[in-house]
Lab assay of single mutants.
Amino acid sequence: IGSLMYASIFGNVSAIIQRLYSGTARYHTQMLRVREFIRFHQIPNPLRQRLEEYFQHAWSYTNGIDMNAVLKGFPECLQADICLHLNRSLLQHCKPFRGATKGCLRALAMKFKTTHAPPGDTLVHAGDLLTALYFISRGSIEILRGDVVVAILGKNDIFGEPLNLYARPGKSNGDVRALTYCDLHKIHRDDLLEVLDMYPEFSDHFWSSLEITFNLRDTNMIPGSPGSTELEGGFSRQRKRKLSFRRRTDKDTEQPGEVSALGPGRAGAGPSSRGRPGGPWGESPSSGPSSPESSEDEGPGRSSSPLRLVPFSSPRPPGEPPGGEPLMEDCEKSSDTCNPLSGAFSGVSNIFSFWGDSRGRQYQELPRCPAPTPSLLNIPLSSPGRRPRGDVESRLDALQRQLNRLETRLSADMATVLQLLQRQMTLVPPAYSAVTTPGPGPTSTSPLLPVSPLPTLTLDSLSQVSQFMACEELPPGAPELPQEGPTRRLSLPGQLGALTSQPLHRHGSDPG
């Protein structure tokens, strides 16, 4: 009997000691992992102490058991019943959930998450997105703005933001810190809205009876308010094209079509300037034949640059190039080494500058006005007194259609001029006259002087055409309008007829 009692007592005591040691061994194993994590990542002392304290409290609170892992091991129907039991206190005593059906309560219970916070733990920081609604079931918390405590909340209090009033989550206007050990039930806004969409009859009752104890939403960050730039940057990543407008005076608003859609830094370009900076079609017209890549860069430059609305530039004389043409100036200075066709295309550029300027006046029909002061630039669209967005969009579309028509007509005119030049060069190729044979009589004449090349004649003739079109064909006081194609086609051969009437002889060394 004594040996039996000794064996039973010894066996029970050893089993008890073994169970104690097993729990202690698990605790030390998990604690060792936490300390190894702290050492590996070199976490500083204040945060390291918070980690160790939280682990110790969580171990004593749950005995080292992962409740979520245990809950996920059950089937979904059983999980709903378990969640309904775990959140029964909240669902029974909170006013917004009263009167809900059994199915609605089960769906809500599945969406709730339980959070346990030790003292000093910050649940929400200032500036964080308010993605959830919090219900306090135990403990107390404090809300701070800077170093000032603005509120202390306790059991059955609710904090967050009214989700039904805002389409997008706002930002917190303060820090939420736990004063004691707290148990909180939180539900994400997407989950709550999903359940309320499934039960629309409960939705009206819920929003009407929901009383948020403390609204954390920062009202200064609401979209459309003066301080909402940061919020707009976070939620409006896919922005449309940006529009900046110059201020319109009362006198300017009476004149229709007073602005032109141009790229940034293009205030001095012609009315047909689009795409790359520098001139019509993204580059100076005089350098068009020598740089074919300008047409390839036109599309990307047009689509990537934001639109700006600026006044037209001052008018340019008909014979003056659009500006920024070092290529043609070098050719004029060193005409001995340049291609003979460069002079002809220089005359073509003069005609283009004249036609572009006159067509700009035809479509816009307003006098040039000086540029406004820099303080009046970049007025935002949302400022008071601005035109409605639809009106601005319609004006932009009208300007775009005008620019497209202008570009089409300029292309047709350019093709006409090039065809005339090619026809003239085919009839009378460039050549130098040879020395004529002296006559049989004693009164022999001296050799004839060489005839100037055709490109120079073409430049003079085209300059005469531009001056003739600019000065004589337009009646005084009438708006400057571009001439039609047949009129220009008839004027060019008439001007060139006198020049080509002389018999030109080919030089023996000319390969053409």
Rank of each mutant, 00 (worst) to 15 (best):
G174I: 01
L196W: 03
D252L: 12
G288T: 15
N350R: 12
V465L: 11
E296N: 09
R247G: 13
R423W: 11
G288L: 09
S463D: 11
G257D: 07
M198F: 10
T437W: 08
S349F: 05
G282E: 14
P315A: 10
G356E: 10
F235N: 11
P493Y: 11
D204N: 11
V149T: 09
G299D: 15
M328A: 10
R239T: 09
R361F: 14
H507Q: 07
R389H: 13
P315T: 07
R237Q: 10
N339S: 09
L377Q: 05
Y181P: 07
L243N: 08
F135G: 02
Y363E: 08
S358K: 04
D157Q: 05
P388D: 14
A267Y: 09
P264G: 15
T458Q: 10
R248D: 12
L262M: 13
A415V: 11
R395M: 13
L492V: 09
Q422T: 12
D147H: 07
F159N: 01
A261P: 12
T458H: 07
N404I: 04
L492P: 03
I141M: 05
A344I: 07
V259Y: 10
R387A: 10
E194K: 07
M328V: 13
G347Y: 09
S433W: 01
G497L: 03
T436A: 08
L406P: 01
T436C: 03
P169Q: 08
R316E: 12
C471E: 05
T426N: 10
F245I: 15
P311Y: 12
L454R: 10
S172E: 01
P326R: 12
S291D: 11
P322L: 15
L492K: 09
L231D: 13
K186T: 10
P285I: 15
A132S: 12
S290A: 10
P453A: 10
L210C: 10
S349R: 08
S303L: 06
P300D: 08
E161P: 02
E325I: 10
E407W: 04
F135M: 03
P380S: 08
S463K: 14
L420R: 07
C369W: 09
R138V: 08
A470Y: 15
E230N: 12
A415N: 09
H505L: 11
L130R: 02
D460G: 08
E258S: 11
L449Q: 11
S290M: 15
V435R: 12
N350E: 10
P380A: 10
P388Q: 04
V348G: 09
E161T: 02
R217G: 09
P493L: 04
C471Y: 14
R387N: 12
G139C: 03
D336F: 07
M469V: 07
E258P: 11
S346Y: 03
V428G: 12
Q400I: 03
P264I: 13
R405I: 04
N215H: 01
S203V: 11
P482E: 14
T445D: 12
R217N: 13
S303M: 11
S294D: 15
R361T: 08
T253I: 11
L133Q: 01
A178G: 02
Q362P: 10
L459E: 13
L420S: 06
T437D: 08
P256V: 10
I351S: 10
S444P: 11
V195H: 03
S382C: 05
A267R: 08
V435Y: 09
C369A: 08
L153Q: 01
S501Q: 08
T337C: 04
R237G: 12
R145C: 03
I152V: 12
Y166F: 15
P326D: 13
Q424F: 08
V195C: 08
L454I: 10
G477S: 08
R239K: 10
T213N: 09
G170M: 03
G268R: 08
L399R: 02
L376E: 10
S501W: 11
R248H: 13
Q495C: 13
P370Q: 10
F206Q: 03
T456L: 11
R506E: 12
S286T: 06
H205G: 08
K186C: 13
G299K: 15
L366M: 13
P280L: 12
R401L: 10
P226M: 12
L396A: 08
S303Y: 06
R395A: 09
I158F: 04
T443N: 13
D191K: 01
L184N: 01
S286L: 11
P482H: 04
P442S: 09
S272V: 13
Q483H: 09
L163V: 10
A167L: 09
L421I: 08
D397I: 14
M469Q: 11
M425I: 09
S305F: 06
E296R: 10
Q238Y: 09
R246Q: 12
R237K: 06
D336Y: 05
G439V: 12
P271Q: 15
L184E: 02
R248S: 09
E201G: 06
I212T: 02
Q419K: 06
R506Q: 10
G160N: 01
S209Q: 10
S383W: 05
V149N: 03
D183T: 13
A470F: 04
K333L: 12
D510A: 09
R241P: 06
L410T: 04
T180N: 08
E142A: 10
R308Y: 10
P256M: 11
P256C: 12
G323K: 11
Y166H: 12
P475K: 07
Q467F: 03
P486V: 04
P380C: 05
Y199Q: 03
A371P: 07
L459C: 06
V150E: 03
